[in-house]
């Protein structure tokens, strides 16, 4: 097992880089991070649309959400893989295909997380902001979303973990992410399949378990209360201005 790791660890971690495109674990993490970063704005937009008071916005988005959540991710990847070329005019390579499929798929899941997060904010917050005279969008931007996104942080980290696992499906369309690399290693070594795939599983475990611990830590911090800021200069400024009573 040790020689296996020693021989192939670079290939496993970064693929053929720098002699070729980035691959392996680095590609897995990069793809997942990029997908989540792009999916989050989409998720916020779709989540807001799902609670929109206007039916013409709410219904189509609800249909999209139900359809995307009702089919496997692999289906979305295949749709992207087979139909993007005809839409864009030229053959789309695997990374872009996976990225687009992941952004759409995760965006829809994030939409539900965002929606739940917004609905979890007490109604009084919304009423109060409106009572101050803030319009709907300002209320969302300044009062509701900051609170909702903060509460959603552990869910977002968990979604990142899920996305890392989703990148493994790139294997099926030939993307050189870490599972594909493991399979390549296996064909070269051939008689050590349990070890190769055992190491693959271990790698995912370390990465994903580590991240889910971070999510847990975040959740505990959120439960304990709002962040404490250092004592500010504004207080001393006022006190120096005010004449002693």
């Amino acid at each position: 097992m040790i020689e296996l790791v020693q021989t192939y660890w670079v290939y496993f971690l970064v693929g053929q880089y720098p002699n070729g495109p980035l691959g392996g674990l680095a590609l897995t993490v990069l793809l997942a991070a990029l997908a989540l970063v792009l999916a989050l704005p989409l998720g916020v937009v779709l989540g807001l649309a799902r609670i929109s008071p206007f039916r013409t916005i709410r219904w189509p988005v609800t249909v999209i959400v139900y359809v995307v959540r009702g089919v496997p991710l692999l289906m979305v990847i295949f749709w992207a893989y087979f139909f993007l070329p005809s839409v864009t005019g030229h053959k789309t390579e695997q990374f872009s295909t996976m990225l687009i499929a992941l952004v759409l798929f995760d965006g829809v899941y994030l939409a539900e997380i965002v929606r739940a997060g917004i609905l979890g904010i007490p109604r009084g917050q919304f009423e109060c902001a409106r009572s101050l005279g803030l319009g709907y969008w300002r209320t969302m931007r300044l009062v509701i979303l900051p609170q909702a996104l903060r509460h959603m942080l552990p869910s977002l980290v968990n979604q990142f973990v899920a996305t890392i696992k989703e990148t493994s499906l790139g294997y099926i369309i030939g993307l050189t992410e870490v599972s594909f690399i493991a399979a390549q290693i296996n064909t070269q070594v051939f008689t050590r399949a349990p070890e190769v795939y055992g190491l693959l599983a271990l790698t995912y475990f370390v990465l994903c378990f580590g991240l889910s611990r971070v999510a847990y830590g975040l959740e505990q911090r959120l439960v304990r209360g709002s962040p404490v800021r250092p004592a500010a200069s504004t207080v001393t400024a006022v006190q120096s201005l005010k004449a002693p009573a």
């Binding site: 989703e166 493994s168 599983a201 994903c208 889910s212």
Partner: peptide, 8 residues
Amino acid sequence: RNVPLLAH
């Protein structure tokens, strides 16, 4: 749970 189904 921390290993993707594909790897399983």
